[in-house]
């Protein structure tokens, strides 16, 4: 299958330190990939390079076969590469309905309209209610975001991303900071993501990674050290080394 998302030999150094070192990966529609790595592995830099918030020293990023390396962050979103944020970035004074409506309007090129209220636009409201309904947020859709629980805010992050109808979705720790009691709802939302959507999830929680991902990529010191199935990742000696350092080897030898 033609890859929907590709990264080719991406490199970026800060000073002398290669933070992203020759990273290549390719994803097809429907892929569920988890990107993991110890702290300082370069995950954040990688995300910034991919979304266009940071320029690579060399290498290329492709969306749907089109090279977007020189396209800015906004242009990449319009081409279908959408991200969610690790720390919720929502508008505290706005309602969930307004968040999703804004995304729908933006996607359909109507966010610049000077007249009319989205509450009176049947096409927009139908989509807003549908999306929020699927994520169990419909009852709260007219509350202010600052008044709803953190777990629900995380779900709203996903709803906003989906309202943009992405082709590639970058989820940055979708369950970060969510109390254990609410993670089930988020996992359900992840399981219900559109089947043809390519999803790259950056995550620390290994339980979530194993349940969600069909493929795991391990980043360490800016380079990919493992790319394969979840069942093999824990057995890989280099991954153990990267995560546990010499302690792993010591216990291994013992």
């Amino acid at each position: 299958m033609q890859p929907i998302f590709e990264v080719r030999n991406l490199k970026r150094a800060f000073g002398g330190l290669a933070v992203t070192n020759d990273v290549s990966l390719s994803m097809a529609p429907g892929d569920r990939v988890a990107l993991i790595g110890p702290n300082g592995a370069g995950k954040t830099t990688f995300v910034n390079l991919v979304t266009g918030n940071l320029k690579p020293d060399s290498g290329a990023v492709l969306i749907g076969g089109e090279t977007v390396t020189s396209v800015d962050a906004i242009g990449r979103v319009r081409r279908g590469l959408v991200r969610s944020f690790q720390v919720t970035r929502l508008f505290a004074d706005m309602t969930p309905a307004e968040h999703v409506a804004l995304a729908v309007l933006q996607r359909s090129g109507r966010a610049g309209r000077l007249f009319g209220n989205f509450l009176g636009m049947p096409g927009v409201m139908a989509e807003v209610e549908d999306l929020l309904g699927k994520l169990g947020l419909k009852d709260l859709m007219h509350r202010k975001v600052s008044e709803i629980a953190y777990g629900q805010q995380r779900l709203l992050e996903i709803a906003v991303a989906l309202a943009l109808r992405p082709r590639v979705l970058l989820l940055d720790e979708p369950a970060a900071g969510v109390p254990q009691s609410d993670t089930g709802r988020i996992e359900q939302a992840l399981a219900d993501l559109p089947a043809d959507l390519a999803v790259l999830m950056i995550e620390h929680d290994m339980d979530l990674v194993f349940r969600f991902a069909k493929r795991v990529i391990v980043l360490a010191a800016g380079a990919i050290i493992f790319d394969g199935s979840p069942s093999e990742v824990t057995k890989d000696p280099r991954v153990r080394e990267a995560y546990l350092g010499s302690y792993a080897n010591a216990s291994h030898a013992a």
Binding site: V77, F85, M94, L102
Partner: peptide, 22 residues
């Protein structure tokens, strides 16, 4: 209007608005 809502979003978090493609 939608435009007013967009501006309100920009006031709170322009980076978020950029990540929505606006």
């Amino acid at each position: 209007s939608p435009f007013g809502m967009l501006c309100r979003g920009i006031k709170e978090d322009p980076i978020r608005i950029r990540s929505m493609g606006a």
